[in-house]
Simulated assay, not measured.
Amino acid sequence: MQHVFLSDEPFPLELGGELPALRIAYHTYGELNAARDNVVWVCHALTANSDVADWWPHTVEPGRFLDPSRHFIVCANILGSHYGTTGPLQVNPATGSPWYGSFPPFTIRDMVAAHRLLARALGIGRIATLVGSSVGGFQAVEWAVEEPERIARLVLIATAAKASPWTIAIDETQRMAIEADATFGQPRNDAGMKGLAAARAIGLLTYRGAAGYNLTQQDREELPAAHRASTYQQYQGEKLCRRYNAYSYYAILNAFDTHDVGRGRGGTDAALARIAARTLLVGITTDMIFTPAEMRALQRQIPGSEYHEIDSPFGHDGFLVEHEQLNDILRPFMEGQPTENNN
């Protein structure tokens, strides 16, 4: 069920700006038990919403790792998003008009500060399991470092402790595509849409990789009028434009690049050493954004953590596709059972 939390208090931002108030859209599934010890908090990725059952198929179901009959599952829409939390298309109270490009810059730590504010408002103390994949993993690892005593178990899927030059370069290429659209910057909800479509097409190349495309986008005839891979890119760009906006996408890409759990904490190793949660990391064999080697290196930095790997041809998007493999790994871990570490 979707809910909305409203705070009339100013919300300070790490880079020096401030939001005069804050709105957070969030979903919950299941019921909080009497001991208040069955909370599972899911941090979502770039363009997802707070409805985990919508964007993560076959996970919020009985018998799955996000089982609403066992857990009280919470997912909050991230700061800057298009799906109900304060972002560029919402009205700036100071002007009476949408923020658009004037929305103040924010960071992954600001996203986590909003999550923490919501958790306090919901009366949630200890979180039994904090789950994050991709940009959601950025939020999860940041939260586990910031409040180690609050998180009992931590699941990090296809993510990192710091935005790498490679991931920043991917983001910058997408920003360049948006900026090349002459309408971007205009005070309109549909500004920058052609640029957004191009940015999404660029992003998809890194989400799926060669194996995924070669498996699913082969032409069915010898000389087609339009290549299947070409129409797929066009379709995916148009699909995102129907549900999202260029200002939110651009702002969140900027926030992505700020991610560094070691900033102001003595470096990445020192920051990750603060994590007290029992931690499980999941890599994907063909992920070219957060490679298995990088995920294994991250596992070695987190005390007592364990590593598992999903075998998938679908690259970074494998965490959205390979729900059976993911359930086999995550469900026993979240239920406190021993797991077979395939480190």
Rank of each mutant, 00 (worst) to 15 (best):
E335K: 09
N341P: 00
F65A: 06
A197V: 07
K162L: 02
V60F: 06
D51L: 06
T339W: 01
S134V: 04
E322K: 08
F11D: 05
V74Q: 04
P187C: 08
F106H: 10
D311H: 13
Y244R: 05
L22Q: 02
Y26E: 02
T183A: 11
F65K: 05
R296K: 14
C75K: 03
A94V: 01
R242L: 13
R120M: 09
L223M: 11
V131P: 01
A297P: 09
L326E: 08
G283P: 07
T285W: 04
N92W: 06
D269M: 02
A144M: 08
P303T: 00
V52G: 07
V112Q: 03
V60L: 14
Q299F: 00
R116N: 03
Q301P: 00
F256H: 03
P292F: 01
A273P: 00
A45L: 13
Q236S: 14
Y83G: 00
W166A: 14
Q234A: 15
T279A: 15
V282D: 08
R331D: 07
F5I: 13
A191N: 05
D8G: 15
E222V: 11
A94D: 12
I151Y: 00
L46I: 03
L19Q: 07
S97F: 12
D190P: 10
P187E: 14
L89V: 12
A152T: 07
A198C: 10
A152H: 01
A76M: 07
N49I: 01
L215I: 04
M295Q: 15
G209E: 02
W99C: 03
V42N: 06
T279G: 09
T291H: 08
H27F: 04
L122Y: 02
H3S: 13
E31C: 06
R188A: 10
P224D: 11
H323T: 14
D181A: 08
A21P: 00
W166D: 04
P105H: 06
E309G: 07
A197F: 05
L330P: 04
R70S: 04
I310S: 04
L22D: 01
I108D: 01
H82M: 01
R64N: 12
N49K: 05
P292I: 04
H71R: 15
N77E: 13
G17I: 05
G262I: 09
N341Q: 07
D171T: 06
A255T: 05
L196H: 11
N33A: 11
V4R: 13
R278H: 12
Y244V: 02
A160T: 13
M111Y: 05
D54F: 14
P68V: 06
F333D: 00
I108F: 07
F333T: 01
Q301I: 00
I108Q: 04
G16L: 09
L272Y: 01
T167I: 13
S50P: 11
T206D: 01
Q301L: 13
A226S: 15
D260V: 02
Q2K: 09
V42E: 09
E238D: 15
G125M: 08
D317S: 10
A144H: 03
Y29S: 03
I329E: 00
G16Q: 11
W56A: 09
I275L: 06
L205M: 15
L330D: 01
S102E: 05
V155Q: 01
Q186W: 03
G17M: 13
S133E: 10
S69R: 11
I157N: 10
K239Y: 06
D311P: 00
I24R: 03
